[in-house]
Each structure stands twice: as C-alpha cells, then as structure tokens.
Design a protein around this nucleic acid. Structure first.
Lengths: 198, 198
DNA sequence: CATCAGTGAGACAAGTATGTCTCACATGCG
DNA sequence: CGCATGTGAGACATACTTGTCTCACTGATG
C-alpha cells in the first residue's frame, strides 16, 4: 500500500518531534530551531520541512496542549460526582502535561494584543464551569470567582511544574500538593471542639 | 555643592528608568532596549550609558525586585502575631510590585543552569520561615512543605498579576483573591452541623 | 540495477537586536 | 560669552536566528 511505504520512509514522525520540542521548550523556552531539531534527533532542514517556521511549531504545540487538556477534561468527567473529586481527577489527568502547559502559559503572556486560540477559551470555560458547579452545589465558596479560580489553577500547575523541574519539590507529590492547596488552602482545618476566634 | 549640580544635570535619574522599564517589561517581557528607552522618555544611547546592556538592566531590575520584596517582608512583620495575619499583610505589601515579580519569575525560568541571585534565596527562606512558623503554631497544615507553599505563593502572585493585566479579574480583588485562596482554599468551610461524607 | 523520495549538512541572504561610536545641540557654570 | 557636561539622533559593525536553497547520501521500491 502506498501509504504504508510513505509511513516507512517518514522515519521522522511529527508526533515524536512535537513531544521532543515540548520537553525541551519546557526547560528552555528560548531554544532555537536548531536546538529543537537536535533534541528531536533530526536536522534543522527536516524540522523546517515539517513545520513552516517557529511560529508554526509553537502553534502546533499549542494545538497539542489544547488537545491534551481536552482529553484530560473528558477523562476526568468533570461534570460527574462531587466537584471536589472532579478537581482531583482533573489535576491528576493534567499532571503529565503540566510542563508543556507551563510553557504555553508563559508563552501566551508575550502575545500582548493577539487574540488567543479559541481552544483555550473552550477549556477555560470548561474549567470555570467545574468551579461554578462546585459553588452551586455548595461544595465551594462563592466569594472567589470561577475566572480567578481557573487562573489560579493554571498558576499552580505552572509553579508546580517549574518547582519539580528545578528539584525543589518531589515529582510524586505533584498532584497532592496542587489539589490540597487549591481545595483546602494552607490553613489547618479547625477541630470540632477547637477555639472559635476567626 | 558639586553633587547638587551633578544631580540637576542628570535629568535622567536611574530610578525613573528602572520603574518605567519594570512597567513596560511587565506587559511585554520581550521589549527591546529601544522600546525600554522610549518608555522611559530617553534615547537608547542614554539608556546604554546607564546600563551597560540588556543583561545589566535585567539584573538591576532583579535587584529592585529583591529590594522591594525585602521591604515588603519587613513592613509585613512576618514574625509577629498569627501567621495567618502575617500572610495577609505580606500579600498586601507585595501587591504593588506583583507585576515586576511576575516578570522576574518567568525570566528566571530562562536561566537554566545559572545560579540565581542569592537575594532570592534569602527571600525564599523568609517566606518559607513564615509558613514554617504557621505550621509550628498549629495554624497551618503540615502536609504541604514550606518550599511548595512558597512556590505556590509566587505562582498565585504571577497569575493574579497577569489576570489583572488582561482584565480577567478586578484589580481591587487582588489581595483578597490570593490570600483567601492560599489560606482557605476553594472548599467551603463545613458548617458546624453539616453532613459528614468526605 | 536504476530510480526516487526523504534526509543531513552546509551555504546563503535577510531581518533584528545589540553594543559602540561620532556629532550636533542644549543647558548650567565660571 | 566661552566652556564643559549630558543628551538625542543616527550611523555602523557585529552577532544571532530564521528561512530558503543546493547537493550528496541513504534506503526502499520496481
């Protein structure tokens, strides 16, 4: 079959290049096309044959990140069961891609005026909907807006990804740290028979 | 006095340039030396006369950020009173400089290998000490490490600064949002006579 | 074996930011 | 007024990245 032959000749598959680029750019967001190519084990020429330019590469990574987020959202079934548990599932699903998301998150800060990909808007809305659902059900407090909670979740994910990358926290604690801080905060839960001053 | 005359001739004072650069780079972290100069109302030549190069400028901004953090830490008296209140004071003191800190925070992600300024180490230690104190006093939970709580605080500060800059949240809520989420989390405090399923 | 698609290596031009320099202008001082 | 200092404007060389191109090599196909 012609497409099988084609596949075999394409020793460099697009997905592997994207993964390598994501892993590299997570650590060094200013890496050049040459560094990206070397990280993927291909030449700069081949890299340019697959992605028209750096912009195209970044946009492909953005599409990858969006796809992974949507997969994570679906897998976490954020509209089922207690919102608290849904948040736990969501963070656990996103964890493997936190590095890429941190890169894209900081990258988006550079695009001052340009409108962001609509995919992010959908994801923002899904996450915000989860927090809104938790507020409606009475699980979550209502004095923090869903928009802020969504931003805070992104910030915590990025912080955790960087902290893990630099060895300041243990990778195994990733999900627990984020979820526990986001859900319960740093304040210790009051004992049933504890003192009452606020 | 000779130094007075000197002052008057130095129509461009270093501090004003730094503030302008901080304000600009907060919004556009890739701004050119020329853009920085224009933002400060001076020429690129004069900018280069005050700061040997872009690196020197960024390092000066880093020193400024460190100084402001140390001032904030001192003003917040983080070693006095309940740790909870100290956190509130600290965030309130840092709020005006959150934009600059967000820039420096993301900038530090680029310096892969280079060791970071020792000033940050001191600040990290002071913040971590605050969280440790709260844990010792029983105010804060002990299953989240002070190192992670410190990182999380930085992440929330950066997230909030960006969210405010892009108009996704109201500036007036800045301190409240960060402090409340950090301290209490998103979960609603349980009522004294509420149901018990986890 | 002959062919051809895909790749790697490298040359090349173009764009951009940087750092340095010169020169003219303005302002305060003696 | 004459002088010195600090500044703005711009030219200039340099370095780096990008994007395009050519050419030789490899391996699978027919």
């Amino acid at each position: 079959m012609s497409h099988m032959r084609y596949r075999r000749l394409m020793a460099v598959d697009r997905d592997h290049v994207l993964r390598s680029a994501a892993a590299l750019l997570t650590r060094k967001s200013t890496a050049t096309m040459d560094e990206v190519a070397k990280a993927a084990g291909i030449s700069r020429a081949t890299l340019h044959r697959q992605f028209a330019g750096r912009d195209a590469l970044v946009r492909a990574l953005e599409a990858l990140g969006i796809a992974e987020c949507e997969t994570a959202l679906a897998a976490a079934r954020t509209d089922e069961g207690p919102a608290t548990d849904a948040v736990r599932r969501l963070v656990a699903e996103i964890e493997p891609h936190a590095g890429l998301l941190a890169f894209l998150y900081s990258e988006n800060q550079l695009f001052e005026g340009e409108e962001q990909n609509e995919g992010w808007a959908r994801i923002d809305e899904s996450v915000a909907a989860l927090f809104r659902r938790g507020q409606s059900s009475g699980e979550f407090r209502i004095d923090l807006t869903p928009a802020w909670l969504t931003e805070a979740l992104y910030g915590l994910l990025a912080s955790a990804a960087w902290a893990v990358a630099e060895g300041r926290v243990a990778p195994k604690d990733f999900t627990h740290m984020i979820v526990e801080l986001l859900l319960g905060g740093v304040r210790r839960p009051e004992e049933p028979a504890a003192r009452k001053e606020s």
